[in-house]
Design a protein around this nucleic acid. Structure first.
Lengths: 134, 134
DNA sequence: TTCAATGCAAAATTTTTGCACGCTA
DNA sequence: TAGCGTGCAAAAATTTTGCATTGAA
């Protein structure tokens, strides 16, 4: 069996996981680092990156690559989609029916799908309103 | 009107556009650079990046951010989806019905959608077969 | 003729890695 | 106590920028 070796529950890993719990802001590694640093002042950014990568491999967090900026991290493991605002750069969770049927269709084409991600680009409600006013 | 100023058709821009035409391999900026360099030996990587960014803003090419690797570029402007192989790293175009209905649903939620991108992760047909055999 | 676009080099940004040491299991 | 995970610093990888010059319109 392939199987990942069980990771040690270090205080750094625990703190990173805790910092992400219930967070819907899709923070970058740097933002998570600053947050966790308040509890563990000696933690290094490299450790944050190493843990986030590991957590993503384990499927405990989702890594979201973005154009022209650092990756963002999402603690929500259940499939859902994202919206990146062209103007303010914020990433939103988006409530849309997830298309599991796609996995099946791709299986028929020979692909073995592990995960998928959808990103919408445009103006978020806040920025959209502001643009309409001016 | 917002409106982009018309870009000058320099030989660099023309060559980059030409290198991308009909290409379905989703090359990186570096790969495009090496390709175009054969025609224009003095072109610089910075120029390739500047042009690709401009072309993406104009909607003439699509920029595809990927986890743990450089962005990839796709000349196909009509909406379609992608598959990134965990094993070989290749990016495939994927034939699935594009969900325009999503734009409408998001509009109801206050978002103004300009574009969207879906990325599937897993094993491509070639790598899938190899793994099954061994 | 004008000024947007280029080439080059340097810098900025983001992420990864080598290594000695500390801490979890 | 074994060896995984850490901190630190340095490096790698990717992308952007400053500036003098070129060339498309």
């Amino acid at each position: 069996m392939p199987g990942l070796k069980l990771p040690r529950m270090t205080k750094q890993r625990r703190a990173i996981l805790a910092a992400l719990q219930g967070d819907t802001s899709h923070p970058t590694a740097e933002e998570i680092y600053l947050r966790v640093k308040r509890e563990l002042p000696h933690i290094s950014l490299a450790t944050v990156y190493r843990n986030l990568r590991r957590l993503a491999e384990e499927g405990l967090v989702q890594e979201i690559p973005t154009p022209h900026g650092p990756a963002r991290y999402d603690p929500t493991t259940r499939p859902h989609y994202h919206f990146l605002c062209d103007e303010c750069g914020r990433v939103y969770d988006v409530r849309l029916a997830v298309q599991n049927r796609f996995h099946h269709e791709l299986a028929l084409q020979g692909f073995k799908v592990r995960a998928h991600e959808m990103m919408f680009y445009g103006l978020c409600p806040a920025c959209n309103r502001q643009n309409a006013q001016s």
